[in-house]
């Protein structure tokens, strides 16, 4: 079974479950690999066993570490990246926003729009001030260019991934 892991920047990791061995009703062994350019690398065997209603994992079946039990999660975490999980299929219609497209990285409220449509902007210039979790965050331009379109207005409450402004 193949699992696609796709993070917020649309970077993806493809993990293949190549073998499942059921040792007994409490112990299962999985063989995982990562698919890079159509070849499988980083092959590892992982043991999982249930103890005291928790999951423990091991590489050798001898030393065990507890893992958080999850209810068939749609997301998985690696330090600063949260991956969306797609088991068995790769979702279509996912494309990365271009440099000039300003998307909200987290839900928030527009406090101030610092530029007007048609205005020339420089890389690093503050375009929008977005308030999220009681902090004001300055959204800066990723490039030199001209403001092509503003899709939001001051006071708007936005979800994550909303297109706020286009610069070209």
């Amino acid at each position: 079974m193949r699992t696609y892991l796709i993070d917020a920047n649309k970077d993806e990791v493809i993990v293949d479950l190549t073998k499942t061995i059921v040792h007994n009703s409490d112990l299962v062994e999985f063989e995982f690999s990562t698919c890079v350019d159509n070849s499988l690398v980083n092959k590892e065997n992982i043991f999982v066993r249930r103890l005291a209603n928790n999951y423990f994992s091991s590489l050798d079946g001898k030393s065990w570490r507890k893992l958080a039990r999850q209810n068939l999660p749609k997301k998985i975490l690696n330090v600063d990246r949260v991956f969306d999980l797609y088991r068995g299929y790769k979702p279509s219609g996912l494309s990365a926003g271009s440099e000039g497209e300003l998307l909200t990285q987290m839900p928030g409220k527009i406090v101030k729009i610092a530029v007007k449509k048609g205005e020339e902007v420089k890389k690093g210039q503050t375009l929008i001030i977005l308030e999220a979790m009681k902090m004001e965050n300055e959204i800066k331009s990723g490039m030199d260019g001209v403001v092509k379109e503003i899709h939001v207005k001051e006071g708007d409450a936005l979800d994550s991934g909303v297109l706020m402004m286009e610069v070209e």
Partner: peptide, 18 residues
Amino acid sequence: YLSLYKKLATVEARRMGL
């Protein structure tokens, strides 16, 4: 990778009803 595999393994285990 190891930590990712471990997390995916618990997902699979859960799916299998372990």
